[in-house]
Design a protein around this nucleic acid. Structure first.
Lengths: 73, 73
DNA sequence: ATGTGACTGTTAGTCCGTA
DNA sequence: ATACGGACTAACAGTCACA
Protein backbone atom coordinates (compact mmCIF):
# COMPACT_ATOMS: atom_id res chain seq x y z
CA UNK A 1 0.00 0.00 0.00
CA UNK A 2 1.03 3.62 -0.37
CA UNK A 3 2.94 5.78 2.08
CA UNK A 4 -0.24 7.49 3.09
CA UNK A 5 -1.74 4.33 4.52
CA UNK A 6 1.55 3.36 6.12
CA UNK A 7 1.90 6.70 7.82
CA UNK A 8 -1.67 6.64 8.99
CA UNK A 9 -1.20 3.14 10.35
CA UNK A 10 1.99 4.09 12.13
CA UNK A 11 0.33 7.11 13.71
CA UNK A 12 -2.65 5.04 14.70
CA UNK A 13 -0.49 2.47 16.39
CA UNK A 14 1.48 5.13 18.19
CA UNK A 15 -1.61 6.84 19.55
CA UNK A 16 -3.19 3.52 20.48
CA UNK A 17 -0.12 2.36 22.36
CA UNK A 18 0.14 5.77 23.95
CA UNK A 19 -3.28 5.20 25.40
CA UNK A 20 -2.17 1.77 26.53
CA UNK A 21 -4.91 -0.15 24.79
CA UNK A 22 -4.71 -3.28 22.68
CA UNK A 23 -5.94 -3.86 19.15
CA UNK A 24 -8.60 -5.99 20.76
CA UNK A 25 -9.80 -3.13 22.91
CA UNK A 26 -9.70 -0.65 20.08
CA UNK A 27 -11.66 -3.10 17.98
CA UNK A 28 -14.40 -3.06 20.58
CA UNK A 29 -14.33 0.71 20.98
CA UNK A 30 -14.36 1.50 17.29
CA UNK A 31 -16.59 -1.43 16.36
CA UNK A 32 -14.11 -2.60 13.77
CA UNK A 33 -12.86 -6.16 13.49
CA UNK A 34 -9.54 -6.70 15.25
CA UNK A 35 -7.86 -8.27 12.26
CA UNK A 36 -8.88 -5.31 10.16
CA UNK A 37 -7.38 -2.88 12.63
CA UNK A 38 -4.16 -4.81 12.39
CA UNK A 39 -4.18 -4.35 8.65
CA UNK A 40 -4.83 -0.66 8.96
CA UNK A 41 -1.89 -0.28 11.34
CA UNK A 42 0.35 -2.15 8.93
CA UNK A 43 -0.76 0.15 6.13
CA UNK A 44 -2.16 -2.68 4.08
CA UNK A 45 -5.50 -1.08 3.35
CA UNK A 46 -6.70 2.22 2.02
CA UNK A 47 -9.46 3.14 4.40
CA UNK A 48 -12.40 5.45 3.81
CA UNK A 49 -12.93 8.75 5.58
CA UNK A 50 -15.56 7.45 7.93
CA UNK A 51 -13.31 4.67 9.15
CA UNK A 52 -10.62 7.23 9.85
CA UNK A 53 -13.14 9.19 11.89
CA UNK A 54 -14.36 6.14 13.75
CA UNK A 55 -10.81 5.42 14.80
CA UNK A 56 -10.03 8.98 15.81
CA UNK A 57 -13.26 9.07 17.77
CA UNK A 58 -12.57 5.75 19.49
CA UNK A 59 -9.13 6.96 20.47
CA UNK A 60 -10.58 10.27 21.59
CA UNK A 61 -8.08 12.13 19.50
CA UNK A 62 -8.15 14.66 16.71
CA UNK A 63 -8.21 13.12 13.28
CA UNK A 64 -5.40 15.44 12.33
CA UNK A 65 -3.16 13.56 14.75
CA UNK A 66 -3.60 10.42 12.72
CA UNK A 67 -3.08 11.99 9.34
CA UNK A 68 0.37 12.06 7.80
CA UNK A 69 2.26 15.27 8.55
CA UNK A 70 2.54 16.10 4.87
CA UNK A 71 -0.92 17.55 5.18
CA UNK A 72 0.48 20.97 4.47
CA UNK A 73 0.83 22.37 1.02
CA UNK B 1 -24.49 9.60 2.74
CA UNK B 2 -23.36 10.76 6.17
CA UNK B 3 -22.61 14.27 7.40
CA UNK B 4 -18.93 13.61 7.07
CA UNK B 5 -19.14 13.17 3.33
CA UNK B 6 -21.52 16.10 2.98
CA UNK B 7 -19.23 18.40 4.90
CA UNK B 8 -16.21 17.26 2.98
CA UNK B 9 -18.03 17.81 -0.28
CA UNK B 10 -19.18 21.27 0.74
CA UNK B 11 -15.66 22.23 1.76
CA UNK B 12 -14.25 20.83 -1.43
CA UNK B 13 -16.65 22.82 -3.53
CA UNK B 14 -15.93 25.97 -1.64
CA UNK B 15 -12.19 25.65 -2.03
CA UNK B 16 -12.50 24.70 -5.67
CA UNK B 17 -14.70 27.66 -6.49
CA UNK B 18 -12.41 29.87 -4.47
CA UNK B 19 -9.64 28.88 -6.83
CA UNK B 20 -11.92 29.54 -9.76
CA UNK B 21 -11.57 26.13 -11.35
CA UNK B 22 -14.24 23.85 -12.75
CA UNK B 23 -15.03 20.27 -11.82
CA UNK B 24 -13.60 19.37 -15.20
CA UNK B 25 -10.30 21.05 -14.46
CA UNK B 26 -10.11 19.57 -11.01
CA UNK B 27 -10.80 16.17 -12.51
CA UNK B 28 -7.79 16.60 -14.77
CA UNK B 29 -5.58 17.94 -12.01
CA UNK B 30 -6.47 15.27 -9.48
CA UNK B 31 -6.82 12.51 -12.04
CA UNK B 32 -10.23 11.64 -10.75
CA UNK B 33 -13.25 11.08 -12.94
CA UNK B 34 -15.33 14.24 -13.33
CA UNK B 35 -18.62 12.53 -12.57
CA UNK B 36 -17.10 11.18 -9.40
CA UNK B 37 -16.00 14.62 -8.29
CA UNK B 38 -19.58 15.72 -8.68
CA UNK B 39 -20.69 12.90 -6.43
CA UNK B 40 -18.07 13.76 -3.86
CA UNK B 41 -19.17 17.39 -3.75
CA UNK B 42 -22.77 16.31 -3.36
CA UNK B 43 -21.72 14.09 -0.45
CA UNK B 44 -22.96 10.96 -2.14
CA UNK B 45 -19.86 8.88 -1.64
CA UNK B 46 -17.51 7.92 1.13
CA UNK B 47 -14.08 8.48 -0.34
CA UNK B 48 -10.83 6.81 0.60
CA UNK B 49 -7.89 8.54 2.21
CA UNK B 50 -5.79 8.66 -0.90
CA UNK B 51 -8.54 10.33 -2.91
CA UNK B 52 -8.85 12.95 -0.18
CA UNK B 53 -5.13 13.59 -0.50
CA UNK B 54 -5.22 13.69 -4.26
CA UNK B 55 -7.89 16.37 -4.06
CA UNK B 56 -6.08 18.41 -1.45
CA UNK B 57 -2.92 18.15 -3.49
CA UNK B 58 -4.65 19.14 -6.71
CA UNK B 59 -6.18 22.15 -4.99
CA UNK B 60 -2.84 22.98 -3.42
CA UNK B 61 -4.43 23.16 -0.03
CA UNK B 62 -4.02 21.48 3.31
CA UNK B 63 -6.12 18.37 3.72
CA UNK B 64 -7.28 19.74 7.02
CA UNK B 65 -9.06 22.51 5.15
CA UNK B 66 -11.26 19.95 3.48
CA UNK B 67 -12.04 17.94 6.57
CA UNK B 68 -15.10 18.71 8.64
CA UNK B 69 -14.34 21.13 11.48
CA UNK B 70 -15.44 18.56 14.04
CA UNK B 71 -12.01 17.05 13.72
CA UNK B 72 -11.29 17.95 17.29
CA UNK B 73 -12.11 15.69 20.17
C1' DA C 1 -2.18 -10.01 21.90
C1' DT C 2 -1.00 -9.83 16.83
C1' DG C 3 -0.16 -11.38 11.79
C1' DT C 4 -1.89 -13.64 7.90
C1' DG C 5 -4.59 -16.35 4.22
C1' DA C 6 -8.81 -17.09 2.27
C1' DC C 7 -13.06 -15.74 1.49
C1' DT C 8 -17.73 -13.11 0.45
C1' DG C 9 -20.60 -8.93 0.11
C1' DT C 10 -20.54 -4.25 -0.56
C1' DT C 11 -18.98 0.04 -2.26
C1' DA C 12 -15.45 3.00 -4.33
C1' DG C 13 -14.36 4.61 -8.68
C1' DT C 14 -14.57 4.74 -14.03
C1' DC C 15 -16.72 5.28 -18.42
C1' DC C 16 -20.46 6.57 -21.24
C1' DG C 17 -24.51 8.91 -21.96
C1' DT C 18 -28.58 12.37 -21.24
C1' DA C 19 -30.51 16.68 -19.85
C1' DA D 1 -20.27 23.67 -16.74
C1' DT D 2 -22.89 20.64 -13.78
C1' DA D 3 -26.39 17.00 -12.17
C1' DC D 4 -27.72 12.58 -12.63
C1' DG D 5 -28.11 7.90 -14.17
C1' DG D 6 -26.74 2.85 -15.80
C1' DA D 7 -23.34 -0.45 -16.21
C1' DC D 8 -19.18 -2.05 -15.21
C1' DT D 9 -14.45 -3.25 -12.64
C1' DA D 10 -11.34 -2.78 -8.82
C1' DA D 11 -10.96 -2.24 -4.27
C1' DC D 12 -12.58 -1.83 0.41
C1' DA D 13 -15.41 -3.78 4.41
C1' DG D 14 -15.88 -7.39 7.25
C1' DT D 15 -15.40 -12.18 9.14
C1' DC D 16 -13.11 -16.70 10.40
C1' DA D 17 -9.58 -19.91 11.40
C1' DC D 18 -4.95 -20.69 12.52
C1' DA D 19 -0.30 -19.79 13.65
Amino acid sequence: MNDLAKQFGANLRQVRKGKGISQDNLALLAEIDRSYIGRIERGEVNITLDKAYQLACALECDLVELLPPLSKA
